[in-house]
Simulated scan of single mutants.
Amino acid sequence: MKKHLLLFAFSALALTSCEDDDIQGYEMDMLKGEWKTVKTEVISGADNTTVLQTDTSTGCAAKNTTEFRTDYYASFTGYSGVGADCTPQKSEGTYTYDNETKELVTKYINDNDRKYKVVILSNTELKMMEMFDNIDTNGDMIIDFRYITYKR
């Protein structure tokens, strides 16, 4: 009986000691790949639910993509132009991700660090709140937040 109890205790310790690494790896695996920008919203900072402004990607901007790899490489390809005449511009860099705080920070070449809070992360949807350059959009003296939604 003591051997079984001891075996159980060591097994429980081994499983719990790897839990954070497993979650980080699982979320990194879901994050990897190419994401299309589908929508940008400005949400009221007063209640964090009221949508003040919504922009759905159309035209060339509907082709914008962000890529994350498990080796912490990140890239953003933005398209500009009119009609079918879309010109891509690619930015490359790195990112960090903390699965406990859900903070993702991108650092593209010749750009500042950009911090985001991951709100939704699934195999098909990624929604992040920008933690930089936010302003009071509706004049209530409370900073409002911009959310970006991506789909695969």
Rank of each mutant, 00 (worst) to 15 (best):
K32I: 11
E100I: 09
G59A: 05
K36M: 02
E125D: 14
T106G: 00
A14K: 02
A74R: 03
M128L: 04
E92I: 11
V42C: 00
I23C: 01
M28Q: 12
E67W: 09
V82D: 14
V119P: 07
I135T: 15
K32H: 10
E27K: 00
E130A: 11
V82T: 14
T149Y: 10
L5Q: 10
E19F: 13
L104M: 01
T106M: 05
K90D: 13
I23F: 04
D47A: 05
D20S: 15
Y97T: 07
K117F: 03
K3F: 12
T66H: 10
K102H: 10
P88I: 00
V38H: 03
K90P: 09
K117S: 05
I142P: 06
L52I: 11
E125I: 05
K2G: 14
L104D: 05
T106Q: 00
R152F: 03
V51N: 05
G78I: 05
T56A: 06
T65N: 10
K2M: 12
T65R: 12
A46M: 08
N138H: 02
L13T: 14
L13H: 14
T87W: 08
G93H: 04
S57P: 08
T70E: 09
T94F: 09
I109V: 12
D29C: 05
G93W: 00
F76N: 13
A9Q: 07
K36R: 09
A12S: 09
I148T: 13
Y72Q: 01
T66Q: 07
A61N: 13
A9H: 11
M1C: 12
R152A: 04
T94A: 05
N123I: 04
V51W: 07
Y26E: 14
A46N: 13
T87I: 08
E100P: 04
N112P: 07
K63S: 11
E130H: 10
G59D: 05
C60E: 08
K127P: 06
T96Y: 01
K115V: 04
N110D: 15
T87R: 09
Y150A: 00
N64C: 03
D22P: 10
I143C: 00
G139R: 02
P88R: 04
T50K: 02
Q89E: 15
I143E: 07
E34C: 08
T56D: 13
Y72T: 03
M28G: 00
T16F: 12
G139N: 03
S122D: 01
T101D: 13
V51C: 05
D85A: 15
T37G: 08
R69M: 13
Q53H: 15
E67F: 12
A14D: 09
A46H: 09
S17P: 14
S17W: 15
D136Q: 06
L7K: 12
S17T: 15
F76H: 13
K117G: 01
T149R: 05
F132W: 07
V118A: 02
I23H: 06
R69C: 06
T16K: 12
G93K: 07
A9P: 05
I120K: 06
A9M: 11
Y26W: 14
T65Q: 06
T106L: 02
V51T: 09
E34Q: 14
T87N: 13
L121E: 07
H4F: 12
R146Y: 11
V42Q: 01
D113L: 07
K2C: 12
M141F: 11
